[in-house]
Measured scan of single mutants.
Amino acid sequence: MQVTWGNVTVTFSNPEEAKKYAEKVARKLGGQVELHNGQFRIK
């Protein structure tokens, strides 16, 4: 499962870890987490 924002992509084998990481990054950037085609995207 991947977490992407800007031109950065981070890949996780565990979807739960990916979700936690995406939420943490979104909080830092003041963005929203979207699940899109099996990727968490931060907008």
Rank of each mutant, 00 (worst) to 15 (best):
E16Y: 12
V8P: 01
G30F: 05
T11N: 10
Q39V: 14
A26H: 02
V10A: 06
L35W: 10
V3K: 01
M1H: 13
T4A: 09
V25K: 04
V10C: 15
F12R: 01
Q2T: 14
V8H: 12
Q2M: 11
Q32V: 15
E23M: 11
V25L: 14
L29P: 00
G31V: 07
V33C: 06
G38Q: 04
G38F: 05
K28F: 14
V8N: 09
S13I: 09
F12A: 01
W5Y: 09
G6C: 15
Q39F: 07
A18N: 00
W5T: 03
L29C: 13
N14Y: 05
K24N: 09
A22K: 01
W5C: 14
K19A: 09
S13Q: 11
G30A: 05
T4G: 04
E34M: 07
V3W: 02
V25T: 05
K43T: 14
W5S: 02
Y21F: 14
F40C: 04
Q32M: 12
E34I: 13
A18L: 02
Y21N: 01
E16V: 13
L35Q: 07
G31E: 04
H36L: 13
F12K: 02
K43H: 11
K20T: 10
G38A: 03
E34Q: 07
A26V: 04
T9K: 06
L35P: 03
R27C: 15
M1Q: 06
V25M: 14
K43Y: 13
E16P: 04
F12L: 06
R41W: 15
S13M: 10
A18Q: 01
R41A: 06
L29E: 03
A18G: 02
V10F: 09
Q39E: 12
R41E: 07
R41G: 03
H36S: 10
W5G: 01
G31S: 07
P15K: 13
T9F: 05
V8D: 03
Q32Y: 15
V33P: 03
Q32S: 14
I42L: 03
V25G: 00
K43M: 13
Q39W: 04
N37E: 10
W5A: 03
G38D: 05
H36Q: 09
A22M: 04
Y21S: 01
V25E: 02
R41S: 06
H36W: 13
E34C: 14
Q39C: 11
N14I: 06
K20A: 14
R41H: 14
E34K: 04
V33K: 02
L29Q: 04
T4H: 09
K28M: 14
R27W: 08
T4M: 10
P15A: 13
G6H: 09
A22Q: 00
E16S: 11
K24T: 10
E17A: 13
F12T: 00
A22W: 02
Y21V: 04
I42M: 01
E23F: 14
K28L: 14
G30K: 08
P15G: 09
K24C: 15
V8I: 14
R41K: 09
V33T: 03
T11Q: 09
A18T: 01
A26T: 02
N7A: 08
F12Y: 03
K43D: 05
N37C: 15
V10D: 01
N14L: 07
V10T: 05
Q32K: 13
K19F: 14
L35N: 06
Q39S: 11
R27D: 07
W5V: 11
H36T: 10
E16A: 12
H36N: 08
A18R: 00
T4L: 10
Y21H: 03
L29M: 09
V3D: 00
E34W: 07
E17L: 13
N14T: 13
G31Y: 06
Q32R: 13
Q2P: 04
K43Q: 10
M1K: 07
G6T: 03
F12W: 03
K19W: 13
K20G: 07
S13V: 09
G6I: 04
P15M: 14
F40D: 01
L35T: 07
Q39L: 06
L35A: 06
Q32L: 12
T4V: 15
K24H: 13
A22L: 04
A26S: 04
M1V: 14
L35I: 13
F40T: 01
E34F: 10
A18D: 00
N14M: 06
V10R: 11
K19E: 07
E23Q: 10
E16D: 12
F40G: 00
F12M: 03
L29Y: 10
G38I: 02
T4R: 12
Q39H: 13
A26E: 00
Q32F: 14
T11Y: 14
G30N: 10
V25Y: 04
K43W: 11
N37S: 05
V25R: 03
V8R: 09
E16G: 09
N7H: 10
F12D: 00
V10S: 03
Y21I: 03
A18I: 02
G30Y: 05
F40I: 09
E34T: 08
K19H: 08
H36G: 05
V10Y: 11
I42F: 03
K28E: 11
S13W: 08
V33Q: 01
F40A: 02
Q32C: 15
L35R: 07
L35H: 06
G30P: 02
A26R: 03
R41D: 03
N37Y: 04
Y21D: 00
G38V: 02
R27I: 09
N37F: 05
Q32G: 05
G38T: 03
T4Q: 09
A22P: 00
E23R: 07
E17V: 11
K28C: 15
E23G: 05
V3S: 00
A26D: 00
S13R: 13
L29D: 02
G30Q: 07
K28H: 13
W5D: 02
T4E: 04
Q39D: 06
N7G: 10
E17Q: 12
K20L: 13
K20M: 12
P15Y: 15
A18K: 00
N7L: 07
Q32D: 06
E17D: 13
T11I: 11
H36Y: 12
M1E: 03
K24M: 14
R27E: 10
N37L: 07
L35Y: 14
E16K: 09
P15F: 15
Q39M: 10
T9W: 05
V25S: 02
T11H: 11
L29A: 05
E17I: 11
P15D: 05
K28N: 07
Q2E: 09
G31A: 10
M1G: 06
T11D: 06
L35G: 04
K28P: 01
H36V: 15
V8T: 11
E23V: 08
E16F: 11
E17G: 06
F12P: 00
V10L: 12
F40L: 13
G31Q: 05
I42A: 01
A26Q: 03
E17F: 09
T11E: 08
K24Q: 12
G38E: 04
H36F: 12
K28R: 14
K28G: 06
A18Y: 02
H36D: 09
T4F: 07
A26G: 03
V3Y: 02
T11A: 08
K20F: 08
A18E: 00
Q32W: 15
Q32I: 15
F12E: 00
P15T: 13
V10N: 03
T4P: 01
T11S: 12
Q2L: 09
S13E: 11
V25D: 00
I42R: 01
E23I: 11
W5I: 10
I42T: 01
P15L: 12
G31M: 09
Y21C: 13
K19C: 13
A22C: 04
G6L: 09
V33Y: 06
A26M: 03
V8G: 04
L29I: 14
V33M: 05
V10E: 04
E34D: 06
T4S: 13
Q39G: 14
V33N: 01
R27A: 12
A22F: 03
M1W: 15
E23S: 07
T9S: 07
I42W: 03
Y21M: 04
K19Y: 14
W5H: 07
R27T: 08
N7M: 08
G30V: 04
A22Y: 02
E17M: 13
N14Q: 07
Q32E: 12
T9C: 15
V10W: 13
H36C: 15
G38N: 08
K19D: 02
F40Y: 15
T9R: 06
G6D: 13
K24L: 13
K20Y: 08
R41M: 14
V3P: 00
S13G: 09
V8A: 05
N7W: 08
Y21Q: 02
P15W: 14
A26K: 02
R41N: 08
G6V: 04
G6S: 06
K20Q: 12
G30S: 06
F40W: 15
P15V: 13
V3M: 03
K43N: 10
N14P: 02
F40V: 04
K20V: 11
G30E: 04
E17S: 12
V8W: 12
N14A: 07
E16H: 11
Q39I: 14
N7D: 10
Q2S: 14
M1F: 15
T9L: 07
V10P: 00
N14E: 07
R27N: 08
F12H: 01
G30I: 03
G6M: 08
K28V: 13
H36R: 10
